[in-house]
Amino acid sequence: MRATEKKKKRRWLRVTGIVLVLLLFGIGAYAFSVYKSLTNAVETMHQPIDRTKSDKRAEQVSLTNKQPFSVLMLGVDQRKGDKGRSDTIIVLAVNPNNKSVEMLSIPRDTRTEIVGHGTVDKINHAYAFGNEEMSMNTVENFLDIPIDYYVKVNMEGFKDIVDAVGGITVNNDIDFTQDGYRFSKGQVTLDGKKALAFTRMRHEDPRGDFGRQLRQREIIQGVLREGASLSSLAKYQSIFSALGNNVRTNLTFDQIKDIQKNYRAAANNVQQMSIKGNGAMINHIYYYIVPDAEKQRIQKELKAQLELK
């Protein structure tokens, strides 16, 4: 090989090497930026409560050891000067062994004991009386299972989360109009404002609050799908910002990492549960009454999912 050719080859290898180094540096810087933004968002989201472990567990659940766990999701219409009520109450029972999540929506008008308040009232009033801690204790008592963690979402700001992931697509099973938007039956693509309207409709739905719960679950699953997609990597700053502004949880950053690492397969198999009861007027107030036999059925299924004796 002539000296000129060798020189050109060395120059090409040098240029290629520099480009590779720059690419690796760029990828490393991007990864660090994503990691830093995520940790900042989780620190903002983290809101510990004075509740070290559930009374329904002998020992605190271990995410590192891949034990089944539960999460209480609270959707709160939180406006300025009003902390609101938890109009959306969803329990997730996550089991990594059978790779599934059972999702139960509890109607907000469900009549039950408000633990720590000494009253029998609508279950969504627990948050108004005693924030996340009273909500967790009340749902625990109602379902007779441990509630290990909570995630609270400000529904007024939920539209920001939907917009941050670039909008979502859901399956709508009923034609209706809400807040000036028309939602046709079938697949519907929603931005943040439409998603909020989609979750709030219940008066046009013959199923009442149950139809509303179904739409709420569609929204949650739509956000999870879009948030997990590769296209969302380019939107990470707006996603983390929206989460930090509108979500609070007692999960720590390390616990969230454990869930992502040890429970990922379960998230692909979400099974929706329903709770049956009847509406009734008591002292001129509407309540949703769940019979004892129905409560026992739900409790048994959730205990099996959480592998409780």
Rank of each mutant, 00 (worst) to 15 (best):
Q213V: 07
A267L: 13
N268L: 11
A195C: 01
I220D: 08
K261N: 14
G227T: 04
R207T: 13
D205G: 00
T252S: 12
E218W: 11
I219Y: 05
R248V: 05
A265L: 13
G227N: 02
M201K: 05
K261P: 11
F210R: 00
F253L: 15
Y236V: 08
L230G: 00
D209Y: 11
E204I: 01
R200L: 14
L233D: 13
T199Y: 09
V270C: 06
R202M: 00
R202G: 00
G208L: 09
S232I: 08
F240T: 02
D209H: 07
I220T: 07
A195W: 01
E226H: 07
K276M: 08
R215G: 00
I239A: 04
R264E: 14
F253R: 09
S238L: 10
D205W: 02
S238A: 13
Q260V: 04
K235W: 11
A266K: 02
D258W: 01
E218P: 03
F253C: 03
Q271R: 15
E204D: 10
G211P: 03
A234E: 14
K276T: 08
N262I: 00
R264D: 13
S274C: 07
R225H: 12
S238F: 06
N269R: 13
A265V: 14
V247D: 02
I275N: 06
R215N: 11
R217I: 08
H203P: 00
F198S: 01
D205M: 04
R264Q: 12
L251P: 00
D209I: 09
T199N: 13
P206S: 02
M201D: 12
R202K: 03
F253I: 13
D254N: 03
S274V: 09
R200E: 15
D209P: 14
